[in-house]
Design a protein around this nucleic acid. Structure first.
Lengths: 342, 342
DNA sequence: CTGTTAGCGCCTTCAT
DNA sequence: ATGAAGGCGCTAACAG
């Protein structure tokens, strides 16, 4: 049976006191090398395991960091998490991952759960922007522990964030399509309640106007970020009086749907129609007709978010700091929009 | 500043004792409805958060469950985790995810970390099968907490597991290729130190012999599970005196590599060559030439693993039980191997 | 139904 | 360099 062995057990065996055993494990204290190694050895032999819970309770520091994402079964978030983990684990932090499934209630529950677990910080990609979520996040950040946004942020004062420049991403993609000779560029826009999608749309608009191309309302279709939605949106676009000759999609999945629809209609890509997606999902480069996309550097984003947390936790907690890190998006030109090298 | 509020703070304010406050939060105890709701209300107003760490320490139960996977940025494992989470979260468990990156040292570290964190159980997909890992796992399982294997197991007595029938998966895939008229079927075999890959190879062999097809050593190429390795292996196969007319790949990524190589050599798929992968990665159905694959039902696997854990934790701990759940693989026939409906 | 007491495992002054 | 004592926040007897 369990028979958990504690520092008292090993103290008794060595005829010393628990305090000494404790000191042996927290090397900083002054303790003779002899007893130190003796303690460590016997602890090992007795199969002793430090109880992090007790440690955390006593120290007021759990070494847990909470990570909240919409979902984990997405290449993007999985890579962000990987980045976070790699950065944090070497510093002795363990991460606890929570998923919201884009549900506001779950999001609030997750925050509560993490606070209950006494995490030392929270890294969050927000799903929702209700007033309630906003006020809870504001309160957590200003009263308790460091909270850092990544990818999807709320614009709240005093809260740090690590994002990519979605505006620039949208701009680059659109500009590229213009350079390829496309003049009637449509946009599959995502959920406009999320700032990232708004920014991509704005980048698209700016690129058009900078290039003296008229913005047409009818060329912007709001779609979910999945294949089927992309297909339907494209069908709609192709049915217009004056159909577009290119699509910049705010999501790779919708871009794939667009391509499927175009193929069904026997429209040649990229000769007669160009497509650019967003997110650099693995399949975009696997396709025979590889899909141009905007890389968001998810792993680097995670690493950066972790670094900001570490800075935050190490400074004097009275001195709140706000750090807004904005990563640069990278346009990956592939077959779906490359007329030169085709 | 933090100013953590405890049950004592709210007890003082209400002029009652901390025990009563505690009881209010653990509804089972006998306590008057009046005080109960009073406590809950004021606790809420004071922004009180239960300290799960203290609770866990006191109760000897953390409500944490550790999950160890090779990596999280894989569709398969992400979905397994999702299944685990959905099953466990409703029961009040929080999961802590660790990645091994297929590194034996990390694997052992992860186990230690989780034990230190006082998890109530460990769900693990093993990366490695060294003697050391084996003995640690054996020891954890028999002396401390429930440990359950999923997908990748070690064959140790008394330890439960949830896996899919990889043998059958290999058999189904190969049999299907035979039915499509292929007679010279090659196999891209994975790391044979992992049982899952051994089983897939064995299923392949059995399907051949059941159909009176001679097994040829030269048709089995051991490759890593990535695109490049699949390409190279296929190049090698095509260079044989008597090259194959089909490939059953133990990995979807290698299958994709195979297809890329075949296309470069202008070999028509599926007319002149059929390919079947394993894992049902998202891209397999996204491709224009969609790839046949074996579905491993990752989400269900995760749910099942969680359920087995819950059973284990709820029975008398003296009574160790071993439960081997084997899920049935599902062959998904797509364009890369479908000669009938093409 | 509520108060009192003790202790989960650990660390950290304060002594010595 | 080590021992003694108290407490982190909570709950579970045991009283009453």
């Amino acid at each position: 049976m369990p028979e958990k062995v504690t520092i008292y057990d090993i103290a008794k065996k060595l005829d010393i006191t628990a305090a000494t055993v404790s000191r042996a494990f927290n090397s900083n204290s002054k303790i003779s090398m002899a007893t130190r190694s003796l303690v460590l050895d016997t602890a090992n032999k007795m199969n002793y395991k430090q109880n992090k819970l007790a440690q955390a309770l006593r120290n007021g520091k759990s070494n847990y960091v909470g990570v909240i994402v919409p979902r984990i079964d997405s290449n993007f978030f999985a890579l962000v998490i990987r980045g976070i983990e790699e950065e944090l684990q070497s510093k002795g932090y363990q991460i606890i991952i929570c998923q919201t499934h884009e549900d506001e209630k779950r999001e609030i529950e997750n925050i509560t759960t993490l606070l209950n677990a006494q995490v030392d910080g929270i890294l969050i990609s927000v799903s929702n922007a209700t007033k309630e979520t906003e006020s809870i996040i504001q309160q957590v950040s200003s009263n308790t522990i460091p909270l850092i946004f990544f990818d999807r942020q709320l614009h709240l004062e005093g809260i740090s964030s690590v994002t990519i420049n979605d505006f620039e991403g949208g701009y680059l993609a659109t500009e590229h399509l213009i350079k390829e000779g496309c003049t009637k560029i449509a946009h599959l826009a995502g959920d406009q309640s999320l700032a990232i999608f708004k920014s991509r749309l704005n980048g698209y608009k700016k690129a058009l106007s900078d290039n003296k191309i008229e913005y047409r309302e009818e060329y912007v279709v709001h779609t979910k970020s999945n294949v089927e939605a992309g297909k339907q949106a494209t069908e709609k676009l192709l049915g217009l009086h004056n159909p577009p000759d290119a699509i910049f999609s705010s999501s790779d999945f919708a871009a794939l749907g667009a391509i499927q629809e175009l193929k069904e209609k026997n429209i040649a890509i990229p000769e007669d129609f160009c497509v650019v997606g967003f997110g650099n999902e693995p399949f975009t480069k696997f396709m025979e007709l590889s899909i141009s996309s905007v890389n968001q550097s998810p792993k680097e984003m995670g690493e950066m978010a972790a670094k900001v947390f570490l800075e935050q936790i190490n400074i004097n907690t009275n001195l709140k700091m706000e750090k807004k890190v904005v990563l640069v998006p990278e346009l990956l030109i592939r077959k779906s929009s490359n007329r030169q090298n085709n």
